[in-house]
């Protein structure tokens, strides 16, 4: 948690990253940036999915509709925050010449999306309408 707080401070302080280690080949930095953007698109897609659930399943009971939409929106928020955090950790690791950080996040996100998808199929087929 302390590590995370330290990272949050770094999000806003570019000079501190630049002070560490040496600048890597710009192509590595650009590849890291593209990975960050890909995660950000994933987050935007999840958020768009949240809006879509709210909008295109109006016959659903309110609790189900709100629950599914909020789950997707929360996944989007997590995904975007993790995107910037991971981008920065990778950037720092490259500057210091360390191994890139590993992460459990893709597995967790995959499971979460699977659970939401199954819940959506069940809710729509069973038809718990309000």
């Amino acid at each position: 948690m302390i590590e995370f707080a330290r990272n949050v401070r770094l999000w806003f302080a570019p000079e501190e990253i630049r002070r560490e280690g040496s600048t890597p080949d710009y192509r590595f930095s650009l590849a890291n940036e593209r990975t960050f953007l890909a995660w950000l698109r994933t987050a935007l897609a999840l958020i768009g999915g949240g809006f879509a659930v709210d909008q295109f399943l109006p016959d659903l009971r309110w609790a189900w509709r709100a629950g599914l939409a909020l789950a997707l929106l929360a996944a989007g928020v997590l995904c975007s925050l993790r995107a910037v955090n991971h981008w920065m950790r990778c950037e720092r690791a490259m500057r210091r010449g360390e191994d890139l950080p590993v992460s459990r996040f893709p597995a967790v996100l995959g499971l979460l999306v699977a659970v939401v998808a199954i819940a959506m199929v069940v809710v729509v087929t069973v038809g718990w309408e309000g």
Binding site: W11, F12, Y26, F36, L40, L70, L73, V84, M88
Partner: peptide, 26 residues
């Protein structure tokens, strides 16, 4: 290299959009 400030701004816009969504749902 991409400035952390810009990356954070892009992410905060995304997060705020999600919060707007949550406000609309509730």
């Amino acid at each position: 290299t991409l400035a952390p400030r810009h990356a954070t701004t892009a992410v905060l816009c995304t997060v705020a959009l999600a919060l707007c969504g949550a406000a609309l749902v509730l």
